[in-house]
Design a protein around this nucleic acid. Structure first.
Length: 407
RNA sequence: GGGGGUGUGCCCGAGUGGCUAAAGGGGACGGGCUGUAAACCCGUUGGCUACGCCUACGAUGGUUCGAAUCCAUCCGCCCCCA
């Protein structure tokens, strides 16, 4: 009875191809799908960054699509390769992690990954299972499958070599190690970011040399962060975290540039491809208002990581603050040592609304501070305010920072 | 091993003795407009209960009434030759 629900290879291909950067080679994937047997889909993750965001979620979502089409996922925790450090996109040798760090990161990774993946169709493996037991002879046999010229084709290696930046010998082995993962689990398909293409192809090549059916490589585009320019990353501060609170997540999603909306729909939401196509067309011909489209996107994302109710609440809270310019309903309360008159910059600092009193002064002078929604206007050089103006009231800085003052 | 260059605020980058808390740009923040998008306009961008004081131009120590600017030593980074 399940067979009746299984979409045709062509239909599956439409879903799989949505939003991806490349499928190498696409015909091979089609052939694999046509067999009608569940495929083994591989994703290797480096347990380097503990907190996942929507950028990390992109390949995970694609895996989930595969699962929903009836395929099996093997998630490989690169606990052994983490000791090498993936040189991809790096201009210097990556610092190796300690086994403890790797373990801790792996645990949080798995926890967050299962917000997306279907546990019933996911197998978790660690690549130390098969990489650690390899002897020197095994390594020689594996390395003999690759030529230096082939490995040095990688543009990040080339760049580093040309620029005289050191490349440790063990780094050259990274692609081979990852390739061997594919051999170990006999993957049909491996996913990765566009920067992973070389490593993915190494897997394909090694499998072929060892007489196996080679995997198909699917690359996914890098996701730009909320600033719309840099790729999403914690260090750029432009990320939407998988564990962000619903309100936060909604607000961040609303702040992405319009041009990125369709990409987010494709890569970060769980809608059917036909529905995403419809939204894209609607935006193009003007029948859908961008704001409405973005709201829906924000709701979809929050629903995925929290719930539909949470999404509805987040939208309501968003409207309250940003559309109707009202005070949100749950404002953190801060206890401030009363003084009369009160030195407003000191209060702002104490309340966590400004990092320094100097900054607080600037904000006051710039008209950024409100009490119970009313802008605070003081004479130049005056920063003292009667305590009665503050006690029990809502102190606001800018559009989104609120605090209720408690004596 | 030899020769040369360079180190400024979150980032890039001017500045070669006082007019420099340090031009200009980017970013960020705030205000306006708006759909918390983009674009655009304006303001702010070291600290301090503050018409003043303190700390800042890789580090330390000097010269000077006065130094980011001159000198010495040290540290970091980069380039060329071997």
């Amino acid at each position: 009875m399940r067979e009746a629900e299984v979409p045709s290879a062509a239909e599956q291909l439409t879903t799989i191809a949505s939003g991806v950067a490349d499928i190498v080679p696409a015909e091979a994937l089609q052939r694999k799908l046509e067999r009608g047997v569940p495929l083994t889909i591989k994703l290797g993750v480096d347990p380097t960054a503990p907190d996942l965001h929507l950028g990390h979620a992109v390949p995970l979502r694609k895996l989930r699509q595969f699962q929903d089409l009836g395929h099996e996922v093997v998630l490989i925790i690169g606990d052994f390769t983490a000791l090498i450090g993936d040189p991809s996109g790096r201009s210097t040798t990556r610092p190796a992690l300690t086994p403890e760090q790797v373990e801790a990161n792996a645990t949080t990774y798995i926890e967050q990954a299962f917000k997306i993946l279907d546990p019933a169709h996911t197998v978790m493996r660690r690549n130390s299972e098969w990489l650690a037991p390899l002897g020197f002879a095994d390594i020689l046999r594996l390395t003999s499958q690759f030529t230096v010229a082939r490995i040095m084709e990688r543009d990040d290696f080339q760049k580093r070599y040309r620029e005289g930046v050191g490349i440790s010998l063990h780094e050259l082995l990274y692609p081979m190690a990852q390739a061997y993962d594919s051999v170990a689990i006999a993957s049909d398909v491996e996913l990765g970011g566009t920067d992973q293409l070389f490593n993915l192809l190494a897997g394909r090549e090694l499998m072929e040399k060892l007489g196996m059916e080679p995997q198909v490589c699917i690359t996914l585009p890098l996701l730009e962060g909320t600033d719309g320019v840099q790729k999403m990353s914690k260090s750029y501060g432009n990320y939407i975290g998988l564990t962000d609170a619903a309100d936060e997540m909604f607000g961040k999603a609303m702040s992405i540039p319009d041009v990125l909306m369709v990409k987010y729909y494709r890569l970060c939401a769980a809608l059917k491809v036909t529905e995403v196509d419809r939204v894209e067309a609607g935006l193009l011909d003007g029948s859908l208002h961008p704001n409405a489209v973005k709201r829906r996107l924000a709701r979809e994302i929050v629903s995925l990581y929290h719930s539909e109710e949470a999404a509805a609440q987040a939208e309501e809270a968003f409207d309250r603050v940003f559309k109707r310019h009202e005070v949100p309903d749950d404002i953190p309360e801060v206890v401030v040592e009363p003084s009369d008159p009160a030195h407003l910059p000191a209060v702002l600092k104490a309340a966590g609304l400004a990092p320094t009193t100097s900054e607080a002064r600037r904000l006051i002078e710039g008209g950024a501070v409100r009490i119970d929604g009313e802008p605070v206007v003081l004479d130049a050089g005056v920063f003292d305010v009667p305590w009665s103006m503050l006690a029990g009231r809502v102190l606001q800085v800018g559009k989104r920072r609120f605090v209720r003052i408690r004596a």
